[in-house]
């Protein structure tokens, strides 16, 4: 079942479904003209608040934090799209097919983190223009790469949320909102992680975006490359762990579906 060629095929077909869903949501125009603009405005709004309560360093802190939270929120659309096979009636067919469910679901919602990578990068770079924040071409490349990595790692967490939403489809939006709010509060978006009690600080380490934010802020602040690399590694490692958990949970959902039937009707 873990045959790499078959895994790639499974992910690819998931992506085909994801692209079709994405296209039914947005045209190129509505995506760039409405969705992208909306995210940029949202981040701009936070930056204005940052401007009122803090100095220019804090504004930059907030821009990056708010843009990454928009990335988290968009990526968590996975919570909804992981339930759609139930609605479509394709779930029983997937259960009956020789499919590794986690790979399929990895492809199934992949358009969200990819779209989020673009919106978040554009939001950061656009608002940088208004707040005297300059990025060298190398920094821009690194920024986009780190946003992509963080976005994909967050996606792995979102898959775990999706696996839970599959069991409680009615709660899919509540769960994803809750995760977004928790990440916004505790993962260093608006206030440093160190502000919170140790237990929360520890918990925040399990969330990929905590490390991703640190790495991205490192590029902006000119932190040592080794530190950036370290944060990036943690982003990837936590993402990989969430991915492993999602593989397990999707498998578990499929075998639960075989035992009972609530997932199949």
């Amino acid at each position: 079942m873990l045959h790499p060629v078959q895994a790639a095929r499974t992910v690819t077909q998931g992506v085909v479904v994801s692209v079709a869903d994405f296209r039914s949501f947005y045209t190129w125009r509505t995506w760039s003209g409405a969705w992208l603009v909306r995210i940029v405005c949202q981040v701009a709004f936070y930056s204005l608040i940052g401007n009122m309560v803090g100095d220019s360093d804090y504004v930059i802190y907030v821009i990056i934090g708010a843009a990454m939270m928009a990335c988290v929120a968009e990526t968590l659309m996975t919570s909804a799209s992981s339930t759609w096979d139930r609605t479509l009636g394709t779930l029983p067919l997937l259960v009956g097919a020789p499919v590794e469910p986690g790979f399929f679901y990895f492809g199934r919602s992949l358009m969200w983190p990819l779209s989020a990578t673009v919106t978040t990068s554009v939001a950061i770079l656009t608002l940088s223009l208004f707040f005297d924040l300059t990025w060298s071409p190398a920094q821009i490349a690194l920024l986009v790469l780190l946003v992509l990595i963080t976005s994909l790692s967050t996606y792995c967490l979102a898959l775990v949320v999706g696996a839970l939403a599959m069991i409680f489809p009615g709660a899919r939006n509540v769960i994803s909102s809750l995760v977004t709010i928790l990440a916004t509060c505790f993962c260093g978006a608006m206030v440093p992680v160190e502000f919170w009690p140790p237990a929360i600080q520890w918990a925040a380490q399990a969330v990929p975006v905590t490390h991703g934010l640190e790495a991205i802020r490192g590029i902006e602040g000119g932190t040592r490359a080794a530190d950036i690399l370290m944060s990036t590694s943690w982003t990837v490692i936590t993402g990989a762990l969430w991915f492993a958990l999602s593989l397990f949970l999707f498998r578990r959902n499929f075998s639960a579906a075989r035992k009972g039937t609530s997932l199949l009707t």
Binding site: V16, V17, A20, D21, R23, S24, L88, G89, T90, P92, L93, G96
Partner: peptide, 14 residues
Amino acid sequence: GVVFGGDRGLYNRL
């Protein structure tokens, strides 16, 4: 191979 009756179970956007 299995075919369940009715018209559900397809990816409508594909």
